[in-house]
Amino acid sequence: MNFDYTFHWRPVMRKLPDLLEASLTTLQISVLSMIIGITFGLILAILRMNGPKPLAWIATGWVELARNTPALFQLFFFSFGLGAFGLHLTPYFIVLAGLTFNNAGYLAENFRGGFQAVPETQMRAARSLGMTAWQSYTRIVIPQVFRIVYHPMTNQLVWAVLMSSLAMIVGFRELAGETQALAFKTFRIFEYFAVTALIYYVMVKVILGLSRLIAWRMFRY
């Protein structure tokens, strides 16, 4: 074992603005995939609980596939798999679709747990106070569900940020992809990935800190 490697941090520092810009892309695509994923997740959860049979089966299939196969496999499906049907998405949409598919599957289970945790009597109590079904849903049930799923949701956002690094493999240049492209140009692979790891760490910590702040502000009483 001989140590004859000199670290060169300067090329990395010179490209730091590029990396930071790419990390904004990472944040953007993760947040977008979360927003669409939450919408789909809600629909999937409701369909699984009380949708018509065929739709409930499709929802169950989606959730189980998203949860029981690797995220990378799902990305491959959206790149090669859809390519077999002559549908060629751009790398951006491959990553967005893959992340959204995965997020929706995991979130659907969280939402289902949330809905089941709110007792049915809450709904009946709201209705007997004279609220309409819509009012009791939006003012009584949903806020309680939201409180239950808030923590799993922020966890899922963190997972989305970490998962978006798979974009490196399908050739989309968010933080990991950009790092790979730059690293293999200069062969300073270790240095580039070390800095990127640090950026991811800071991003995750900022997200968790902000979510804790929001939770403290929202769920104070």
Partner: peptide, 10 residues
């Protein structure tokens, strides 16, 4: 807090 893929390459 760091993606596994980054850890692997690193």
């Amino acid at each position: 807090s760091v993606p596994l893929i980054i850890q692997l390459v690193l």
